[in-house]
Measured scan of single mutants.
Amino acid sequence: MTEYKLVVVGAGGVGKSALTIQLIQNHFVDEYDPTIEDSYRKQVVIDGETCLLDILDTAGQEEYSAMRDQYMRTGEGFLCVFAINNTKSFEDIHHYREQIKRVKDSEDVPMVLVGNKCDLPSRTVDTKQAQDLARSYGIPFIETSAKTRQGVDDAFYTLVREIRKHKEKMSKDGKKKKKKSKTKCVIM
């Protein structure tokens, strides 16, 4: 069974824990209790493949930012979460993405942009803004509501699919490099 290491990042209060708990335990946590770091595991079937999701729910508070490099190193894919009623959390996505790329030393890291709290009427981040940002990053965008469960499975499952595509691409690139290195030079 394939294991996928997913990391949920975003500013404090955007609903990272609520999304994760909704996926794992099928219930909505409405009281806000700032996370330092929590880890969850769940076995699911995605596109006919049974897999184990190892999900790291991270601290959004700035005082825990020193811990970010460590979990970013171990993560295979990242859910970059903002709240649709919090423009600052949307603007912060850029910083999370840049930090992930720096730590992973790669421009090509599996990510999904997630606009959470889409059940709320007080939207300050337009869907088109988020779609445009995701398009500019070359990553999928999904709106979710941890409260109603809308888009929750889709967000995590899409990230797994992005990781699969990335692994497939990397193995193809690896095979191309191996083929090239088999060419021999004969000096007579």
Rank of each mutant, 00 (worst) to 15 (best):
E3F: 06
E3D: 10
Q131S: 09
K177I: 10
R123W: 10
K172H: 14
A134N: 03
D105C: 14
K182C: 14
S65R: 05
V9Q: 01
E168D: 11
K178D: 15
T87D: 12
K175A: 14
I24N: 14
A11Y: 03
G174N: 06
G151M: 08
S136P: 01
K184A: 14
E91R: 02
V45R: 08
K178E: 15
Y137V: 07
V81G: 01
H94G: 02
T158M: 07
I36G: 10
F78Q: 00
L113I: 14
F82R: 01
K165F: 03
Y96H: 11
G48V: 02
Q61C: 09
K117T: 06
T50V: 05
S89E: 02
E63G: 10
I24T: 13
V112M: 02
I100L: 06
R73K: 10
R73S: 12
K5A: 01
E62A: 07
D47V: 02
Q150N: 14
F90M: 07
I142G: 04
S145N: 11
Y157E: 14
L52W: 09
E62F: 05
R149P: 14
Y40Q: 14
M188E: 15
M170T: 15
Y4S: 07
T144G: 12
Y4D: 11
T124A: 13
M188N: 15
S17T: 10
K177V: 13
A59E: 09
T127V: 13
R41W: 05
E168Y: 05
A11E: 04
K128H: 13
E62K: 05
E31H: 10
E162W: 02
V160P: 00
V14E: 04
Y40V: 10
Y137R: 03
T74D: 15
I163R: 01
I46H: 06
D92V: 13
S106F: 11
A155F: 01
T74N: 13
R161A: 06
K176P: 06
E107C: 13
K176Y: 04
I55M: 09
C51I: 10
I93K: 01
E91A: 04
V109A: 03
S17W: 00
D132Y: 06
E76T: 13
E98N: 02
L23E: 13
L133Q: 07
A59D: 13
Y4M: 03
A134R: 01
I55G: 08
D33L: 08
K175Q: 05
C80A: 03
G13A: 08
T158L: 09
T127P: 10
T87L: 07
V29R: 12
V44N: 03
S145Q: 14
Q70F: 02
K16V: 04
Q70P: 09
K176D: 07
A130K: 02
R149I: 11
R161V: 03
K128W: 10
G15P: 00
L23T: 09
Y64G: 15
Y71M: 13
K16I: 04
